Amino acid sequence: MSIVGSYLRLSPAEFARALEEPGRAREFKQEQAALEHRRGPSELRFHDTEKAWAGLAHLLARRGLPTCVIDGEDELPGDEDWGYGPPRLLAPDRLAAALGELGELPFDALADGVTPAELAAAEVYPARMWDDPFALEYLAAHWTDLRRYLDRAARYRHGLLIWYS
């Protein structure tokens, strides 16, 4: 079993409602999941980074870049554990600010000089993944997909609900 990083885009009204009504975020997640199969690729509200989340957070942190795009910022008040802790939020303005700091950072620049051995030595989750010669390609693919998703969220002025399960 792996820990998966998951995201849900929230409009400003949905974001505010999640803050005001404990438990509403879980209901909203379920409602959106029921609609997801009807959406085109550019309209998808959900995203996950599979088990790449920790490696991506490590790469961002080692460059002094905002890891809130991976982990969120504030815990969702009044909500329960969704698998590996309570969900976290990243407000629309904070997402835009973080993306401004990241700029158009390509994966090659993010991972410049990093080897799978370094990730293993740093005990980045999941440890056994760094033995795979394609581990960095796995992270690169997830970085590209995550950036596309984050850019879309910022374009819509959406915030994020982030959880691990």
Rank of each mutant, 00 (worst) to 15 (best):
A111K: 02
G103V: 05
I3C: 07
E36L: 12
F28L: 14
A127S: 14
W53D: 01
E20A: 15
P22Y: 11
A96K: 01
G40W: 07
G85W: 10
L160I: 11
A33K: 11
R147H: 12
G103K: 08
E101H: 12
E43D: 15
C68A: 14
A140C: 15
R45V: 07
E75W: 12
R17V: 10
G85P: 01
G55N: 01
D145Q: 15
A140I: 06
E14N: 08
A54N: 09
L110T: 02
Y125I: 03
L119Y: 01
P106C: 06
V4S: 07
E50P: 03
P22M: 06
P66W: 03
E31F: 13
R148S: 14
R26E: 12
R147W: 03
P22D: 05
A52M: 05
S11R: 06
R62T: 10
G83P: 06
D93Q: 10
G40L: 13
P87G: 07
E101C: 10
S6H: 13
A98Y: 00
L56G: 05
A140S: 13
Y164A: 03
L10T: 00
I70T: 02
W53E: 01
A34Y: 08
P92W: 10
P87C: 12
R24F: 15
L102R: 04
A122W: 02
D132M: 11
A109H: 11
R62D: 00
D71F: 07
G113H: 12
A141Q: 10
E104C: 07
H58N: 06
G85Q: 09
D71Y: 12
R39Q: 08
R9L: 08
A57L: 04
D145G: 14
A120M: 06
L110Q: 02
A127L: 14
L90R: 03
A57N: 04
V4K: 04
A122E: 02
L10C: 05
D112S: 15
E101P: 00
F107H: 05
